[in-house]
């Protein structure tokens, strides 16, 4: 299979790079000290006189200024959210959050108590978990089964089927809302967990099948053939050989699907309707915005509650996380 610069297929070169070091690359690290003379190349780390080092540091000043400046600019919005979520209501409306540090007495956790109990974010958090976990497991399971068939089984016309899956990857889900909604109404699935689980599983499938099939295909053929020669059935090969070897890509897909469902607003909004007791956090927050658009002490706390889990995953599983997100970025 010819390799392209496609950031999706697990057997892709560029992917390999992402996997190995989306944020860290040992090899180049040594070359980093690099001179401004050679911005694009191996710029050797080495001992040198203080004079040379100073000259270099000055020459690289603008470079550092740009990168650090942009990094700080990127952190400011989220920092504002975090700081404000711990400030008293009056303080937020009176002064900018960056002034909070001069009067630390204004800090409080009252906002969190309010949103979690008074505004239903506590229930919504649980709803988000109830929606997300089964939807993720369902997607990964169904996708893995189909991907295995596409990769290793004599499915007639499997390449055409697979092409259809690739095409479905970018179909906007807006095109499916009305018919599915009517289907749900007929089946009584509107506003139920089952409805949203199935919907999320279906929308996550094209990407999941695509990813896993590409990974399965890249497994060594000899491995499966020797298993078959020893009398293994497809079911045995799938569960005993393919799945254990595919843990990284299963994890990547799982993380992407988890975040996708966790962060989804549209599908929950449409298929759960106005049913408050099953609404996930995104729906609750958007309702808060339209009803208390300027109650920043509530909005910031609610928003922060909703990002805790994704951030935790980001920092704990950075590698799989980046891989999964990049893989899923093409998805609608």
């Amino acid at each position: 299979m010819k390799r392209g610069p496609y950031p999706v297929g697990p057997e892709d070169d560029s992917r390999g790079n992402l996997q190995e070091g989306a944020f860290e690359d040992e090899e180049v690290r040594e070359e980093k000290e690099g001179s401004a003379k050679y911005p694009f190349g191996p710029a050797p780390a080495e001992e040198e006189g203080t004079g040379a080092r100073l000259a270099r540091a000055v020459g690289r000043g603008p470079l550092h200024a740009i990168i650090i400046g942009i990094s700080i600019a990127w952190m400011i919005p989220a920092l504002g959210l975090l700081v404000s979520s711990f400030r008293e209501r009056q303080a937020i409306t009176r002064t900018g959050w960056w002034e909070a540090f001069t009067t630390p007495t204004e800090f409080t956790i009252q906002n969190y108590q309010d949103v979690l109990t008074g505004q239903g974010m506590g229930t919504a958090f649980i709803n988000s978990v109830i929606i997300t976990v089964p939807a993720t497991i369902l997607t990964v399971m169904v996708a893995a089964l189909a991907a295995y068939a596409f990769a290793w089984m004599p499915l007639p016309g499997r390449n055409w089927w697979f092409l259809l899956v690739v095409a479905l990857m970018v179909v906007p889900i807006q095109l499916t809302l009305i018919p599915v909604l009517r289907l749900f109404a007929d089946l009584g699935l509107t506003g139920t967990y089952w409805g949203i689980w199935l919907a999320h599983a279906a929308y996550g499938l094209p990407l999941g099948v695509f990813l896993l099939r590409n990974f399965f295909v890249a497994l060594p053929k000899d491995l499966l053939e020797s298993a078959f020669l020893e009398g293994a059935s497809h079911t045995t090969a799938f569960f005993r050989i393919v799945l254990p070897l595919s843990v990284p890509s299963l994890a990547a897909l799982g993380i992407f699907q988890f975040l996708w469902v966790w962060n989804d607003l549209l599908i929950a909004l449409v298929y759960l309707g106005g049913t408050r007791d099953v609404a996930p956090m995104t729906v609750v927050i958007s309702n808060l915005v339209s009803s208390f658009g300027t109650e920043w002490h509530l909005l910031t706390a609610a928003a922060f509650v909703s990002v805790i889990l994704p951030l935790a995953i980001f920092f704990a599983l950075q590698r799989y996380f980046v891989q999964g997100l990049l893989a899923g970025a093409v998805k609608g």
Binding site: T282, A303, S306, V307
Partner: peptide, 12 residues
């Protein structure tokens, strides 16, 4: 990593 919903709150 975060939802568009949270980002919308942040940017509002």
């Amino acid at each position: 990593a975060i939802s568009f919903t949270a980002a919308a709150v942040i940017w509002r």
